[in-house]
Nucleic acid binder design. Structure first.
Lengths: 212, 212
DNA sequence: TGCATAACCGACGCATGTGTCGGTTATTTC
DNA sequence: GAAATAACCGACACATGCGTCGGTTATGCA
């Protein structure tokens, strides 16, 4: 005779959480279109139908995951940057906070930052919203420093600069996933080196000549 | 009576080129999984079957487009950066070359740089190859400058810095697609401001003092 | 002009995948 | 311990889309 597991049931809220966790993994690994609900269901230890008891559609499931993980990101970063300290220290703290998030939740980072699935109108709106508030948040945080650089907080080009900062930093995080052994501190150092110090700076050599 | 177009036929090479052009557009707009061969065919003014007279599968079609457009990118950028000039000028020229490519062929930029479709093993290999040679090429180009900054060309962290440069620059290009009215020169200026000068620098102070 | 080639098409088979519906059974509550 | 609720499932309907195959017709060439 087969030893039949007594088929435990689980309260809805728990199941829902497990589905979201599973969806995060699969969506991050395969992308939206390539993931089948079947795979999420299996990974959550349940049948496909159950997913539809909790979410009306695949699209809504993704959007839910997106928003939830973004909230986690905001909370994570917000919790570990201080309003005080020198601009340099603030920026360093921000890099460290983001890389620490990327370390803790690599799948969330992937899902939130890798540009994909922009063909679906509804998903696109959500992603753009997240992206936009993110850019604004960073811009606000750096407002003081940026304006000292002659970059007006309202100016278009300032927004562009912030976008460069964000995507560049995330590019570093992406690279990190392929070289996980590099310690986080080294990444922070590299980011500071480029974005804060700038490439023009010489290490120990004499002065650099700019201009003709 | 209907005016029947005499149903012109077109030599295979031309048709092939048109298909590739159409595929570029649709793939860039929708992403790999979301595009139907039907759409590419229609856009190329032909039936779906014809696509299979030229390419054995959707996957190979994408890979072909990828490689072809990447070759164009390499050629475009390579043609307008000089080996001579000060490091700052070389970097500036590179930014300008890349943004000019993004301006000319926005779809190619999107397809080549937006990270997507990594679920398909075969496509993944191609994308990673392209990405890798790109990183190496930039690293080689900046080798002198980077090593003057204390970044050893062979060191891992140098690779990371290059990755930051590339993704950050492309982030700027992405932003540009949403704000097309900004002149290219402004983008180049912004990129130089952040990546070359660095955020720590003060704004309108007269000369930049480096060293003593 | 007639033949060979190559561009082109319509329709089919097959696979995959979403969302729905009715039914079953564990769990809770009174 | 019986009724109500809520978790769970299997199977179906329907849609989409890839790749194939045999046939048709324009075009170039002898």
């Amino acid at each position: 005779m087969e030893v039949r597991e007594p088929k435990r049931r689980v309260p809805g809220s728990v199941r829902r959480a497990r589905i979201i966790e599973a969806a995060l993994s699969v969506f991050a690994a395969r992308g939206y279109h390539a993931t089948a609900m079947e795979e999420i269901a299996t990974s959550a230890g349940v049948t496909r139908s159950v997913l539809y008891d909790h979410f009306p559609s695949k699209r809504v499931l993704l959007i839910t995951v997106l928003q939830e993980q973004n909230a986690l990101l905001v909370e994570h970063v917000g919790a570990r940057i201080t309003g005080s300290g020198s601009p340099g220290h603030r920026l360093r703290a921000t890099f460290d906070a983001y890389f620490s998030f990327a370390e803790d939740r690599p799948e969330a980072r992937c899902l939130l930052f890798d540009r994909t699935d922009e063909d679906d109108a509804e998903i696109k709106v959500v992603r753009w919203g997240i992206r936009e508030t993110r850019t604004r948040a960073v811009a606000a945080m750096l407002a003081r420093d940026l304006s000292r650089l002659g970059l007006d907080p309202g100016a278009l080009i300032t927004e562009a600069v912030v976008e460069l900062l964000i995507t560049g930093t995330d590019g570093l995080a992406q690279w990190w996933t392929r070289h996980p052994d590099v310690p986080r501190a080294d990444l922070v150092e590299a980011a500071m080196r480029v974005l804060w110090t700038g490439l023009s700076q010489l290490p120990l050599g004499p002065a650099v000549h700019v201009g003709k």
